[in-house]
Design a protein around this nucleic acid. Structure first.
Lengths: 195, 195
DNA sequence: CCTACCGATCGGTAGG
DNA sequence: CCTACCGATCGGTAGG
């Protein structure tokens, strides 16, 4: 996963993996079947890590804006803490495979949709609870929050700039403040104090 | 440039380029010297295309918010029109090389800094002219605008979703409305009518 | 899980 | 600009 997050899933060659693990190439083929299956297995393992990381951190937060904030905090923590050396695994895989058809790309699309759907669902719940206004669609808000976190990831990865994640946090919070109701703003104020 | 924007600068092999152009491999080596030099030359050519595209579209817009809006419009048009098959060339190169040290990465960093600097400069001018409030730093605003456009690019490339660029536009405009002064809002209203 | 091997392709060079 | 070639590495297989 570390190799793939830095050099890409295509750079994860079976020969390299063999010499790094001390196994023979043929031994790895016995486990994975083909390079594509190795890529898919690596992707699946990374998705598992992400799900566990983010979901365990959400814990007992109440549905709606509160859980959306917990989700955002956990997501940023996952990207920021360099769980994988190359930053957000899904972002790297998406950029690498968005121009190459095949099963790996299809799976990346599924995982990206699942994650966006999770954000949208939480936003919709916050709207149903009257914490976020319905003037802006859940899709649009999810798009903007997603944009902030991934920009934080890529600025940090490319420039090594420590200000990347504070900026992402600030951008996400300002977006939410923009669309929050009076009730929602109270929850946001609590989140601010949290930091 | 098209090959590199889809399969990455690393996937731009000399053998492939030879068969696509009808030249021999050795002939290409005579021109470029090495694969790394080929990557650098491709990057340079793409940067040239981008600069020309965006700068020619800015035209005679006045400095400040007006020119910032023209810059944003031209940038989105460049990404949206698939000037390169794989979308924004710099975004793809940044994602590919952010984990691999070397001259190509160094040049990508320079180009990214230059572009961000251009945005920041225009935002600072808009602030000096009283079109954008100074409560938010130019850095932060540039970060958020950059986030919107690149999220539009990656959502479109990965999911093929037509709503990606309208969302990016909407996000960028809402961000600007949030930080604009009364004078700035008048200019934004004109931009709205423009569409 | 291994050794031993396959054809294809990689970046690159010699010599013209 | 070419033909002809280099060693290294790629994904993958045969046979055990």
């Amino acid at each position: 996963m570390d190799v793939a997050s830095c050099e890409g899933l295509e750079g994860l060659t079976i020969g390299r993996l063999a010499s790094e693990t001390g196994l023979s190439k043929a031994g790895l083929f016995a486990h994975f079947g083909s390079k594509e299956d190795l890529q898919l297995a690596t992707l699946e393992a990374a998705a598992e890590v992400i799900t566990q990381r983010v979901m365990s951190a959400v814990g007992d937060a109440r549905p709606g804006l509160e859980r959306l904030l917990a989700l955002l905090r956990a997501w940023l923590a996952y990207v920021e803490s360099c769980t994988f050396r190359g930053g957000c695994f899904l972002a790297a895989a998406a950029a690498e495979f968005d121009g190459r058809p095949g099963p790996v790309r299809d799976r990346v699309v599924e995982l990206a949709r699942k994650w966006t759907g999770l954000l949208e669902g939480e936003i919709a719940q916050a709207q149903a609870r009257g914490e976020i206004a319905t003037t802006e669609s859940a899709d649009q808000i999810a798009f903007e929050l997603h944009a902030m976190v991934l920009e934080g990831n890529s600025v940090f990865q490319l420039l090594g700039d420590d200000r990347a994640f504070p900026r992402a946090r600030r951008g996400a919070m300002r977006c939410l403040e923009c669309v929050a109701t009076e009730k929602g703003r109270k929850i946001l104020r609590k989140e601010r104090a949290h930091e």
